[in-house]
Amino acid sequence: MHKRVTFDNKLLPYLLVSPQILVTLVFFFIPAGEAVVYSVFSQDAFGIEINFVGLDNFLFLLNDPHYLRSFGITVFYSVAVAVSALIPALILAVLADGVAKGATVYKTLLIWPYAVAPAVAGVLWVFMFNPAVGIVAQWLRAAGIDWNYKLDGDQAMALVIFAAAWKQISYNFLFFLAGLQAIPKSLIEAAAIDGAGPMRRFFTIILPLLSPTTFFLAVVNMVYAFFDTFGVIHAVTLGGPAGATNILVYKVFNDGFIGLDLGSSSAQSVILLLIVVVLTVVQFRYVERKVQY
């Protein structure tokens, strides 16, 4: 029997977690609580006159077909961002894992984009793809493509997906690389001795063993696309053209901070909050069970 380490001090554990709890309270629970309160009131921009309106803010939203359309757009956008950020990251990680010489250089370069803020990433892409002055836009035009993402919703969507995914690839790369390095070399060598080729080894050994990482990253990427990419949207498309890239969180920002309709904006955040709760429960209950740890 080995000796158990115990903490007799009753206060210390609370003291140790208190900074984290304080941060969560100040930055999450209080604002979220305020949003819930605001969502049943209507108020002018300056907060001088506040009236209780019950569920009116919610009813207005749910009767707005454009709000419902924004739902569909958000789902498509998040899945697309997650997929286009995960697959290249995995390929890069596998390649970087196999590099013997100068591995640190490759890894450092691949991680760099993560340090770029979403809004800045958006501006970078705007400069390259601006239909009038962008360098890539000029190549596209020279290649005979009618590039105008300010009018073509599909092009706009593709552009924001790339801009949002590009940044996230670095983050995913880091986790995949760590995951790959945790896979015992003996397993792979054993398979190689049994005659399994590189593709076979990848799909039957590496990929299943990476599934916890992949699952974790899928969740993180979806959440990233849902909530953190409004900087990209704001810099690149402003939610247009014709609402083609108006994802839910951008609409919250636009209605609340630009349009100063705090009631509706808060109601939208409450709906988003509920979606996240549902998503998290579903994912952890049904998806996590199938993942091998």
Partner: peptide, 11 residues
């Protein structure tokens, strides 16, 4: 402006 964009893009 959203609706104008829908008109200009032929939607």
């Amino acid at each position: 402006e959203e609706e104008l964009e829908a008109a200009f893009s032929g939607k």
